[in-house]
Design a protein around this nucleic acid. Structure first.
Length: 997
DNA sequence: GGACTTTCCCTCAAA
DNA sequence: GGGAAAGTCC
């Protein structure tokens, strides 16, 4: 292949990248590790690299594996890549979450390792039930939950287990014998039912790829997102995917490792760097997402972990408002307060911000109740991500279990669940006996029943005549009829028996509607609506499958025979098990702004302008049952760093004990927040003109005029966060600031208010004086009273002092400068854990003054000698592609897609609309911070808190930096050719809906 | 004796 | 709000 005709700098995809990102995207090192903090554009970089490799390097999409951890992430990535690649080429990529990729390989090649091709997937409920039964039959000591966790861990660790570690673990688990026995029984049960559980999907895929490497012989490159969440078996899988060419790109952030409980191991990062020597390590250091004050506080949280690998995170945006830590009386007050703040923010933004911009992030899904109540009362639309799944609803589960039994008659567990639904007069005890008899006879319950009904074999379990009647007429026959139809669908001229028709026939033949009506008289309508929704989901699935046709199939490999999945039912069932969420009609969802309620886990990788984190008390975060408190801290860090502009933490002072109980227990503030609580504001920020202007700037939106905003404010509207007492333990009146005379600001909106009319809010005053305890004149926009100003100043000085004192007390390495040569993470992990905390300290003398800001090293990480494999070079990236990579060919001998000629390339320069969830680099902030310029604006500490954690931040406040006339790294889009910023108004794409309203 | 109804428990996070 | 043990009914 001839050398590239166009230089890499001209490739359109690069326009949206900063220098470090561009190096990561275009790196020709075989293995690339991109390590970066939140909001630095990791995923954007990864998707760009995929596009680069396919579009520029010329790797065929079907030879690329992109693995993520969640269905959601996979879906979003597919969309983004699709937009950039065009021609539907993204469909050819082997892209998905680990489990679904593994399932595809097993479906295609599983029979080579003796896997029954009709395998089903045992979900959580299945494996729980199976283990429970085994435990009670064997009367084992440990409880089923523990056994289950033990088995899962054993599988997830992978085969390359450290022998020493294994022995230690073995000695630590008492009743090892019993556990092993349960494990054996569990596996044999799964095998008999022809099921694989989630872990098995990975385990068996590893087995397949070890024995038949040729299955992945076409794979030229592998990319992994959220790498810090890989567990042992996934690590092996990744290596096996890439075994032919060993070209891997990983993206991750150890600080965001929050899946340890699922056996994710951060040390896999170190393992990676050891296994792939010469990996190019690239760090992305600029945070494009959040205001600096949000990053400051997030860092104060994460830095409590003394053993972490410290990274640089440079805020790009201005300081912004101080995040709030709000105390409320109870969980329901918390919910009401959140509602009031949401309303306030939206009103005060004049509609610039909508419900879509708000997320409420929870440690556990069960915390949503009070919040949902509050939102419901206020009529604010919301959706819940994570937590209860659509597919987990009883009425949906029944249908799914029926479908499973149709597909796999030998699935005893599914059959057991539906045997008496609708009621057939078969009790729990009888079902258990069936299961036991079937187990002993080594046949399935289904065949036990059907043999009995045909008189071929009399069941030992007593079956009464009416019972038998019911079984035959409402269970065996209808399902057999459906199976028969499926079998005929492949006949010469028979139109295929569609999934939707199948479900409809099923529903009518078991008379599900009647069952729903009688069993759930109160909400049968809702339940029936869910069933209809499910049918339409099935229809969507069928349509999607028809569109992608065989794109979902793996590329043909010579010499390894593939099984083609022709039936829709197994694919649908797999999709149901592996998909985190049901996807409902996007169209109406996008038009109606809704508040997002999500678990923190499910929010990873996403961002919102306004983020609430309720229930930051000990027991919620860190969770009562958590084992790793560092992981809980990281979880809080992940949650906080989702926020772009406004961040709220809140904590109910008293636990919501059950109403009759008169002794409410007191909640303790989370230990991660307690030491730094003074760094937070004690109530929501003032949302005056400067603040809103700043937000508008970051979000690239247009802020309505102040007059317009205030004209829209309803009566009785409180423009400050003062509807709830700041200290819930005092009577409300005690905490209220005395009313003060208003005074126009010297500069600022009030000053510019030239309308002769009386401001509309003034009238409301009189009408709301009854509840004036929560009202202050100083709250008026554009006006700030002297005493408020003073109080605010004092508070902030105090908070700042406290912060500094806390830092000093903790003897943080506050005086150390940011290392100019941040070490490789390999060195960090390589050092002994005890010394790890100090090993990464910068070599720079702590007394040395901050180096001149113009140091190129500040912005040229290459200069930091981080990448032994790459030459230290000028700031222009090396355009060349390693010849070896450029000439990669398919093992099948098919011609490699040729790179477009120069002319073609110029002609179809794509505008690559932003396919990052994070905005790209905003224009250089020439004027500096708002607070600095607006001398009457909310006072802020002169020195940014950044200087307090210089080991992670650059020591220099950004404002100084901006003013210093320092040359920033060249912006690739300064010529105006690429203007994707406007397209970033929607900060995130609404994802999924799990819950009806 | 087994099916149906009521009470108590518990419930972290996700594929 | 849901699932399992205990209690009640046929």
């Amino acid at each position: 292949m001839p050398p590239p005709l166009i230089s890499s700098q001209n490739h359109a995809i690069l326009g949206s990248l900063n220098e470090a990102q561009r190096r990561a995207v275009t790196s020709d090192a075989p293995t690339v590790a991109i390590l970066a903090g939140p909001g630095s554009g990791k995923t954007h970089t990864l998707t760009s690299r995929v596009v680069w490799l396919v579009d520029y390097v010329g790797i065929r999409p079907e030879n690329v594996i992109v693995a993520t951890f969640t269905v959601k992430a996979a879906k979003e990535m597919k969309e983004r890549i699709g937009k950039a690649l065009g021609n539907g080429r993204e469909k050819k990529l082997v892209l998905g979450n680990f489990h679904s990729i593994a399932r595809r390989y097993l479906a295609a090649y599983g029979r080579h390792i003796g896997l029954n091709q009709k395998f089903g997937i045992a979900d959580d409920a299945d494996s729980r039930a199976i283990i429970k039964r085994i435990c009670s039959r064997k009367q084992v000591q440990p409880d089923p939950a523990y056994v289950r966790a033990w088995i899962s861990k054993k599988k997830a660790k992978g085969t390359e287990v450290d022998e020493k570690q294994a022995r230690i673990d073995a000695s630590k688990s008492p009743g090892l014998q019993e556990l092993e026995e349960c494990y054996q029984e569990y596996q044999s049960h799964l095998e008999k039912s022809n099921l694989l559980d989630f872990d098995d999907l990975l385990v068996r895929c590893v087995e397949l790829l070890q024995k038949f490497p040729s299955c992945v012989s076409n794979i030229q490159t592998v990319l992994i997102d959220e790498y810090q969440d890989t567990n042992g078996i996934q690590y092996e899988l990744m290596k096996l995917f890439a075994q032919k060419h060993r070209r891997v790109t990983i993206v991750g952030d150890p600080d965001q490792s929050i899946y340890g409980w699922r056996s994710a191991e951060v040390k896999n990062l170190w393992r990676f760097l050891k296994d792939f020597r010469g990996t190019a390590e690239i760090s992305l250091e600029e945070n494009y997402r959040s205001f600096q004050s949000i990053l400051d506080l997030s860092l104060l949280v994460i830095q409590q972990d003394k053993n972490r690998y410290k990274k640089i995170l440079k805020p790009i945006h201005n300081k912004g408002s101080r995040p709030a830590l709000r105390k409320l009386k109870s969980a329901s007050a918390e919910g009401d307060w959140i509602v009031s703040e949401i309303k306030r923010v939206i009103m005060m933004s004049g509609g610039m911000l909508t419900h879509n911009d708000v997320a409420i992030l929870l440690r556990s899904a069960s915390l949503s109740r009070h919040i949902e109540n509050g939102l419901g009362k206020a009529g604010i639309p919301y959706r819940m991500v994570g937590g209860f799944k659509f597919y987990d609803r009883v009425e949906i589960k029944v249908i799914i279990d029926y479908l499973r039994v149709i597909y796999q008659p030998e699935n005893n567990d599914a059959l057991a669940r539906i045997m008496n639904v609708p009621k057939r007069g078969i009790g729990e005890g009888t079902i258990q006996k069936f299961l036991e008899e079937a187990r002993q006879a080594s046949i399935s319950v289904w065949s036990l029943l059907s043999k009995h009904s045909r008189g071929e074999r009399t069941a030992k379990t007593k079956i009464t005549t009416p019972m038998e009647q019911k079984i035959v007429t409402t269970l065996l026959r209808p399902l057999d009829a459906i199976r028969k139809k499926i079998g005929q669908s492949h006949g010469p001229n028979g139109t295929p028996f569609g999934l939707v028709e199948m479900i409809e026939q099923l529903i009518s033949s078991i008379n599900l509607q009647k069952h729903i009506k009688t069993t759930y008289p109160d909400d049968h309508e809702q339940k029936w609506a869910n069933i209809e929704e499910f049918i339409s989901l099935a229809a969507d699935f069928v349509r999607e499958q028809a569109q992608s046709e065989d794109d979902d199939l793996l590329p043909e490999i010579e010499g390894v025979e593939q099984t083609k999945e022709t039936e829709i039912l197994p694919r649908f069932l797999a999709n149901v098990s592996l998909a985190a969420d049901a996807q409902t009609g996007d169209k109406d969802e996008e038009s109606k702004p809704v508040v997002t309620i999500s678990t923190i886990h499910a929010a990873k990788g996403l961002e919102w302008p306004i983020v609430f984190i309720p229930a930051v008390y000990n027991g919620s975060i860190p969770h009562q049952r958590s084992e790793d408190s560092d992981e809980e801290r990281r979880l809080l860090y992940v949650a906080m760093t989702r926020a772009q502009n406004l961040l709220y933490l809140s904590c109910p002072t008293f636990a919501a004990s059950n109403d009759d109980d008169s002794s409410p227990s007191r909640n303790q503030l989370s230990p991660f927040i307690e030491p730094i609580h003074r760094a937070f504001a004690n109530k929501g920020p003032c949302l005056d003109r400067p603040v809103m202007t700043e937000i508008a700037k970051v979000l690239k939106r247009k802020l309505p005029s102040e007059d317009d905003i205030f004209r829209e404010l309803p009566t009785m509207f409180s423009i400050e966060d003062n509807l709830f007492p700041v200290d819930p333990e005092q009577r409300q009146g005690d905490t209220v600031e005395p009313p003060r005379a208003k005074r126009p600001r010297l500069s600022g909106p009030g000053h510019r208010n030239t309308t002769g009319e009386e401001n509309p809010w003034k009238k409301e005053y009189a009408t709301t004086m009854e509840q004036s305890s929560g009202f202050t004149v100083s709250a008026l926009p554009g006006f700030i009273s002297a005493s408020t100003h003073q109080a605010k100043l004092a508070a902030e000085t105090a908070a700042n002092e406290a912060l500094k004192a806390a830092e000093r007390a903790k003897k943080l390495t506050a005086t150390a400068k940011r290392p100019l040569d941040q070490k490789s993470i390999l060195g960090f992990f390589g050092s002994k854990p005890s010394s790890a905390a100090s090993s990464h300290l910068p070599p720079t003398s702590s007394n040395k003054p901050q180096p001149p800001v113009s140091t190129k090293a500040n912005y040229n990480p290459l200069g930091r000698n981080q990448f032994p494999g790459l030459p230290r070079s000028s700031s222009t990236p090396k355009p060349a592609i390693e010849p070896e990579l450029a000439t990669h060919r398919l093992s099948t001998g098919k011609p490699t897609m040729s790179r477009p000629s120069r002319k073609e390339n110029i002609e179809k320069v794509k505008q690559y609309p932003a396919f990052s969830s994070s905005p790209q680099k905003p224009p250089v902030e020439e004027e500096g911070n708002v607070d600095d310029d607006d001398d009457d604006g909310p006072p802020e500490p002169t020195r940014a808190a950044a200087c307090l954690h210089s080991t992670t931040y650059t020591n220099m406040p950004l404002s100084d930096f901006n003013k210093g006339g320092v040359k920033r790294p060249p912006r690739l889009n300064r010529d105006g050719a690429i203007t994707p910023l406007d397209k970033l108004r929607q900060p995130f794409k609404p994802l999924t809906v799990n819950r009806g309203r």
